[in-house]
Design a protein around this nucleic acid. Structure first.
Length: 201
DNA sequence: TTATCGATGGTA
DNA sequence: ACCATCGATAAA
């Protein structure tokens, strides 16, 4: 079956892109976190199309990972983290900011990749700070209404640019999870070494 | 440069 | 009482 006729397949002036399939997300979470680097996150809403390049991610492995929201069990807030892969888990933090995750592995697993920073590519009205999980959600108009959204859909989706530039990946401990004991020291944060759009180096 | 703190509100 | 943040301010 072909996709719906309104499916977005290219970005004017930027060349084309492909779409990952469901299986891309139904893989080892650490691997997905690495493979998301350099890909695009695309936000399309009536009258606007914003494109940003993913430059920083963190892997949250599942209920056994003490830093992961899923380690506290299923709740109304985190239910989409236990949902099918390739969907969004969006939560609010400190009452002020939203954070975007990409759900990974099989339904029920409770793992996801946090998108921590992106580089504006197209469609932003002016200079926009997208260095940080809360800031990028603000820049892309992402809030809890997008929780559970299929990232293979049209509103918010992942794209694979046709001509990606090469990069080196840096591994670091995750940010803001000191409470997680030994899990806080695991190298589950990934970013593009040369990028100036990383939240902190 | 690092350290600290207030904003702000859902969640458990 | 926390908290996968951010921006401002102060100290050094």
């Amino acid at each position: 079956m072909p996709g719906p006729p309104e499916t977005i397949r290219s970005a004017p002036g930027l060349g084309g892109f492909a779409r990952p399939d469901r299986a891309f997300f139904d893989r080892d979470t650490e691997q997905v976190a690495r493979d998301l680097l350099g890909l695009w996150i695309v936000r399309s809403s009536p009258g606007t199309l914003r494109i940003a390049r993913i430059v920083e991610t963190e892997a949250y492995l599942g209920p056994h990972d003490r830093a992961s929201h899923s380690s506290r069990g299923r709740t109304p807030r985190n239910r989409s983290m236990f949902g099918p892969p390739g969907h969004a888990y969006v939560y609010q933090i400190y009452g002020l900011h939203f954070c975007l995750n990409v759900v990974t592995e099989a339904e029920g697993h409770g793992s996801a990749v946090l998108i921590r920073a992106v580089e504006p590519v197209a469609g932003f009205p002016g200079p926009t700070n997208t260095r940080g999980p809360g800031l990028l959600c603000r820049a892309l108009s992402i809030d809890r209404t997008l929780d559970g959204t299929d990232l293979l859909g049209e509103e918010l989706f992942v794209a694979i640019p046709d001509n990606p530039s090469p990069f080196h990946i840096v591994r670091r401990p995750r940010v803001g999870v000191d409470y997680a004991g030994a899990w806080a020291r695991r190298l589950l944060r990934f970013y593009i070494q040369a990028s100036t759009w990383v939240s902190r180096k």
